[in-house]
């Protein structure tokens, strides 16, 4: 029980709430969403409070994250994609801070729940679809009709394009969710070995060195994954937004 690797993903009601029979309690997940948003906001505002011409370290960090996301968006969606910058930047900062919060022991990982990552990716895809139809009307459907395909293959290619488009929110959400979930479970399992082995006497303590080393290494890897998944989520968001802006690829 103590080493149950699934336990860390459980939700507890901190403030139970219920409206119309629907449970909307303020949970540990909600608390960490609030913390994520608060710390990201405080970081960005406090770091830039000097508004220095020559940035301080913190301001430089804030500017770097801004320019990093702006560079990603401009590279994949062009300069007219910059209208989506606030959205992409919020997504990046939210996912990054949520992932990094999850790395602190005893802290809850917001992004380890599929419903959260799925909601975020539906937000992205929803924006793509709504903006695509708003901007291009029915020409947006040209997204599913690549140019230079012989007529005979067309139905097949269009079907593939539609399936790949529909699978985007699923792959986008499952990628982030599964990475965070699997990483945290692995970490917990190896850390659990250390605890179990040290309880088994002198030999066990000697044997615990291996899983301990593994835990340390995995912690480093998980920090990388935390950043990398936020990055991947952002890059894919930018590419999907590019489809909304320029459906005729």
């Amino acid at each position: 029980m103590a080493n149950d690797p699934i336990h860390q993903f459980q939700l507890n009601k901190l403030i139970p709430l219920e409206i119309g029979g629907v449970d909307i309690s303020f949970t540990n997940s909600s608390l960490f969403m609030v913390l994520t948003v608060a710390s990201a906001t405080i970081f960005m505002i406090w770091a830039t409070s000097g508004r220095g011409l020559i940035p301080t370290r913190m301001q430089s960090l804030a500017e770097m994250s801004y320019e990093f996301v702006a560079g990603l968006l401009r590279d994949s969606a062009g300069s007219d994609g910059m209208r989506f910058f606030p959205m992409v930047f919020s997504l990046f900062m939210f996912v990054l801070f949520a992932n990094l919060f999850g790395m602190i022991p005893f802290f809850f990982t917001v992004t380890s729940h599929i419903i959260i990552t799925f909601a975020l990716s539906m937000f992205v895809i929803g924006t793509v679809v709504v903006y695509g139809f708003y901007k291009h009307g029915f020409k947006f459907l040209g997204l599913f009709v690549p140019q230079g395909i012989p007529g005979l293959l067309m139905p097949l290619v269009v079907a593939i394009e539609i399936i790949s488009f529909i699978s985007r929110p699923i792959s986008l959400s499952v990628r982030l969710f599964a990475n965070m979930l699997a990483g945290h479970i692995t970490l917990k399992v190896f850390a659990g070995f250390v605890a179990t082995l040290t309880g088994a006497g002198a030999l066990g303590i000697g044997g615990a060195i291996l899983p301990l080393a593994m835990t340390v290494a995995l912690t480093g890897l998980e920090f990388l994954v935390a950043f990398l998944q936020a990055y991947v989520f952002t890059v894919l968001t930018c590419m999907y937004l590019n489809d909304a802006l320029h459906p005729n690829h």
């Binding site: 993903f9 459980q10 939700l11 909600s30 969403m33 380890s112 729940h113 419903i115 959260i116």
Partner: peptide
């Protein structure tokens, strides 16, 4: 826990609130 649908409403609501505010 991640597939426990009874928690989805609460998570979605608080995500909407916090992420919306952040946005």
């Amino acid at each position: 826990p991640p597939f426990d649908t009874s928690t989805f409403a609460s998570q979605l609501l608080w995500l909407a609130i916090t992420f919306g505010l952040f946005f």
